[in-house]
Design a protein around this nucleic acid. Sequence first.
DNA 1: AGGTTCATGTAACTCGTTACATGATTCA
DNA 2: TGAATCATGTAACGAGTTACATGAACCT
Lengths: 169, 169
Amino acid sequence: MKSEDVILGIINENSRTGYEIVEVFKTIFSHFFDGSYGSVYPALHKLEQQGMVTKQTVVQEGKPNKFVYSITAQGKEQFKNYLKTSLQPEKVKSDFLMRMYFGEYLTKEEIQDIISHEIRHKEALLEQLNSNYDHWHSKMSRLQQVCYQIGIARYQSELQVLKENGIIE
Amino acid sequence: MKSEDVILGIINENSRTGYEIVEVFKTIFSHFFDGSYGSVYPALHKLEQQGMVTKQTVVQEGKPNKFVYSITAQGKEQFKNYLKTSLQPEKVKSDFLMRMYFGEYLTKEEIQDIISHEIRHKEALLEQLNSNYDHWHSKMSRLQQVCYQIGIARYQSELQVLKENGIIE
DNA sequence: AGGTTCATGTAACTCGTTACATGATTCA
DNA sequence: TGAATCATGTAACGAGTTACATGAACCT
């Protein structure tokens, strides 16, 4: 799975601008995918060149012009191809867990700081997922709901471990 | 956090070969970090050039020679520096959750296949973590135990959601 | 006056992956 | 006989990040 596949999937649901795609990444996909402007815009240009998407210019007042991208038949085909490729293993890169692993080289205060920070951070992420879920779940497919439930369950279980074991005496 | 920081941390615990470092990645760090030969060997050469580690050749019978790397004072300093940098946000890249999100474009059979496969896969990973924990927990620091507990809790909670909601009627 | 939102983009860089190459020994 | 383990490595490639640049409007 690469950015291009995902972008195609998003545009397949709805015509969108690069800016909007990044918004989707940062909100809806936040717990299982990352993507920024530096990856989205070049991908969009490439997809356009390949005939997977078409660009439409929308002139706006008081706001900069924008380019709305729509998927083509070829793009739909390409997206279906992605869905048929074999599943790539999940990748987690956690600097936090790395510091836990090497925690003996830190002072108690430093560790406590890192853990407290992580708890607050994960609580915020959980809250964001929860409110997203509450707001959109009636418009989500069954599987999209499961996707969210998994994110929520992960954050909750991690928070539980941290709150039960993360206090250094 | 990059490979070099982590490699330095591993060598700091114990002198090791590149091969052994990859083994650590694949077993002990499996739930929060990835690294393969293609990243470890070049990193080791770079660290040696920079004077962070020293190489010692060990001649073996019936096995290829190996290079055991040890950390230097400079390397220890460098590792401490990493531990003082600000915490990088966790990154999760999940092709599985992406397919859940776009599941409506798949047949029920295809989805069921993906979910069943994921359940079996995560069960295997959980089992590996559990047996690792059982075997080593008495030799782990408190924080290393927490690190493992978080991995275990995550897999368990995800499996619970999948088993409760992952059956398509 | 200054931060945020909307909106696009690129060039340089860094990092990691993939695919290849080698080769003896041990286990089934 | 053939797969797995131990053991090292590189070259080419691919992907994504970072840092930069621009600019109007709106909110506080």
